[in-house]
Computed example of a mutant assay.
Amino acid sequence: MEFRQLQYFVRVARLQHVTKAAEELHVAQSAVSRQIHRLEEELGVNLFMQKGRNVQLTPVGQLFLKRAEAILDDLDRSVTEIHEFLDPEVGEIRLGFPHSLGFHLVPQVVAAFRKLHPNVKFKFRQGMYPSLIKDVADAEVDLAFISPHPEKNDLVTGEIVLTEELFAILPENHPLSQQESIELNQLKEETFVLFSSGYSLRPIVWEACLEAGFTPKIGFESEETDTIRGLVAAGMGVSLLPEMALYRTSSMMPAVVKVSAPHVARTIGIIRRSSEKLPLVVHMFHSFLLEYFKSQYTPR
């Protein structure tokens, strides 16, 4: 079995068309067909079946595609690691993060890092808590910011880099909006605007309300901090958000009040795959992050 056969097979499988695959590979169609035929003969199975002018994977072809892609991905990573070993200043970092960190924290740390290492490239992927852990475990990303930091997970490991307080947000005409601080149970009769299920801030707020002695009444749910802020500013309810989600980005901003009891906070961590050595450029960025949050990071 040859590397070229795997390349041709994967390209045909993705495009479902031999001629288009040959054009992308810059080789003759006959060369692609010949290599696919040899691969099928060696395996003793049919990997494709004809479907009009296109081709379609057989069930065994679908199984083989997963393995072939994994082999090619491993090879690509090996080549990348070699290049990074020779010069980590030109490597690439794949970074995951939740939406709530995308407006301020991620741009801030990446900009600071690129001042020192301007040729390093980044690929970003946003996701919710479970998908970020899966992306790291499946090697879809190298590192991920995550909140809250997982207490124990066999697939990933990491460090807490930041603990951030959550504040109550209220309509500006709310009776408590001018208070320096409030206790959370003072909002027990209010309608809450919360993140949708699956977002990590939702259980933090929910559990804080339970600790304060009440179950929050949910009036609206959203997937974005901007929407939650806007709904609260428009008088549709109250909520709790972390400080970095409260930077003024529009004319409609709610009142922000400190919560004195119970103390509500979230941890923010950086995770990586367990028991796996990081590529040099990723290790360099990881070390930078740990030092940055110890000595340089400011919330604003």
Rank of each mutant, 00 (worst) to 15 (best):
F192T: 12
E164A: 02
T215K: 10
E190H: 09
M236P: 04
S200K: 06
V259M: 12
S250L: 01
L210T: 04
I169L: 04
A168H: 02
T163Y: 02
E221Y: 02
L241H: 04
F214C: 08
E159Y: 07
E243F: 06
S222K: 03
L184F: 07
F145K: 14
V259G: 12
G219M: 05
G237R: 03
A234Y: 05
E190Y: 04
E140C: 05
H174R: 01
S260D: 09
K258L: 13
S197Y: 06
P148K: 02
G158N: 11
I146E: 12
Y199W: 10
K188M: 10
L240N: 02
P203G: 09
M252F: 12
L246S: 03
P171W: 00
I160N: 01
F214Y: 13
H263K: 13
L210R: 12
G213L: 07
S260E: 11
E172R: 14
I169R: 01
L162G: 00
L240R: 01
S177M: 04
Q179H: 11
A212C: 06
K217A: 07
I204D: 09
L241I: 10
A261C: 06
V161L: 14
A208C: 14
F145Q: 12
R202A: 14
P150A: 08
E224V: 11
E221N: 06
K188V: 03
I182S: 05
L170Y: 03
M236T: 07
F195N: 09
E151Q: 15
E159N: 08
G198W: 00
A144Q: 12
F195M: 11
E207K: 13
S147V: 06
G235L: 07
S250V: 03
K188Q: 15
V205L: 14
K258T: 15
E172H: 08
L170K: 00
E224G: 06
H174S: 10
F220D: 01
P216R: 08
L176M: 10
P216S: 08
L187T: 02
S177Q: 04
A255L: 09
K217M: 05
P242S: 09
F167W: 13
L201F: 09
Q178F: 04
L241D: 07
V232R: 03
E151V: 15
P262H: 11
L201V: 11
E172S: 13
E165R: 00
K258G: 09
S222I: 01
F220Y: 09
E172N: 15
S250P: 01
T157Q: 11
K188D: 04
K152F: 08
Q186E: 13
T157R: 08
A212L: 07
V232P: 09
K188F: 01
I218F: 00
L231N: 04
T191H: 01
S222F: 01
T157H: 02
S250M: 02
G230D: 06
S239N: 07
S147D: 08
N185F: 14
I228L: 05
F214K: 07
L184C: 08
M244H: 10
M253R: 11
G158R: 11
P171D: 10
I204K: 11
G158T: 12
N185H: 15
D154R: 15
